[in-house]
């Protein structure tokens, strides 16, 4: 029944030097549906597949705006993400009020990093069962950070977390060199293509299950204004889905258009 005696709390090391509760929390992230984030020199993009618990229910949101300039993508326990999201909203609003500027994304991510880490060092607490991709733009340009339940945070050029996210990461690694110079639309297309890699057989990106979010940095010469973080859902993502569907599925003879999306 029990794997071992060292996984009852998050303060006890196993003799091998592992903390099982933290590792289990990392497993919870892998249960969540996949989310992908990519940065270029000018933009940062988040894309996600939403899941519905049953045919009659709505789809669980995956992308959340935090402030004008930042947003998150979640994989894992949505309710835990809510706590982190509320905290991030409070911190970035507080920063805006006291300094009159957007909170640097790195500072914000480090704050949830420390918050999550303390949960792994106090008896009676548990780690957050959620992983985040934090995307935002600040004075130093666009940023993408990965956040893990262990409290580890890391800046990424492109990354994917969630179920079968390894497939998406393989795609990202293969195309890594292209991202930096990508425009807004190209970057979204890359995101959706990476997302597709991680889909299970027979499942497709639809307007119901796909979310896209974008933020753009202001240009260094002051020409272009910053594009605020915005989440796109439903019909708004239709054109993007079609733009990446053309290449493979159009060749297959438009079979994909047939019938309703059946829960896989």
């Amino acid at each position: 029944m029990f794997r071992n005696n060292y996984d009852n709390d998050s303060v006890t090391f196993s003799p091998q030097g592992r903390i099982f509760q933290v590792e289990y929390a990392a497993e919870a992230v892998k249960q969540g549906s996949v989310v992908v984030g990519i940065t270029s020199k000018t933009h940062v993009v988040l894309v996600a597949v939403k899941r519905n618990a049953e045919e009659l229910s709505s789809y669980q949101k995956k992308l959340f705006p935090i402030d004008e300039h930042v947003g998150i993508a979640i994989a894992g326990l949505t309710s835990d993400a809510r706590v982190l999201s509320n905290f991030m909203k409070q911190q970035s609003l507080g920063h805006r009020l006291t300094y009159g500027r957007s909170m640097p994304v790195r500072s914000l991510v480090e704050m949830i990093g420390s918050k999550a880490q303390t949960n792994t060092q106090h008896y009676g607490k548990r780690p957050y069962g959620v992983g985040l991709l934090v995307a935002g733009v600040d004075e130093s340009g666009p940023h993408l950070f990965e956040f893990q339940p262990s409290g580890m945070t890391e800046e990424m050029v492109a990354f994917a977390i969630g179920a079968r996210s390894q497939m998406a990461r393989t795609y990202l690694e293969k195309n890594l060199d292209k991202f930096a110079s990508c425009g807004r639309e190209e970057l979204i297309a890359h995101g959706l293509k990476a997302l597709k890699e991680s889909l299970v057989q027979d499942k497709e990106l639809t307007v119901e299950n796909t979310s896209v979010a974008v933020a753009g940095a202001k240009s260094k010469d002051g020409g272009a204004k910053a594009e605020p973080f915005k989440v796109y859902d439903g019909q708004e993502v239709n054109a993007w889905i079609e733009s990446v569907a053309d290449e493979k599925e159009a060749a297959a003879g438009g079979e994909s258009g047939e019938g309703m999306d059946v829960d896989a």
Binding site: L97, T98, Y99, G100, R101, P104, D138, E139, S140
Partner: peptide
């Protein structure tokens, strides 16, 4: 110079001192 651009500018400092 790049680092200075990313840090708090005079307007940010003003807002902070005001609070």
């Amino acid at each position: 110079e790049a680092a200075a651009k990313e840090g708090l500018n005079a307007a940010n400092l003003y807002k902070y001192l005001q609070k």
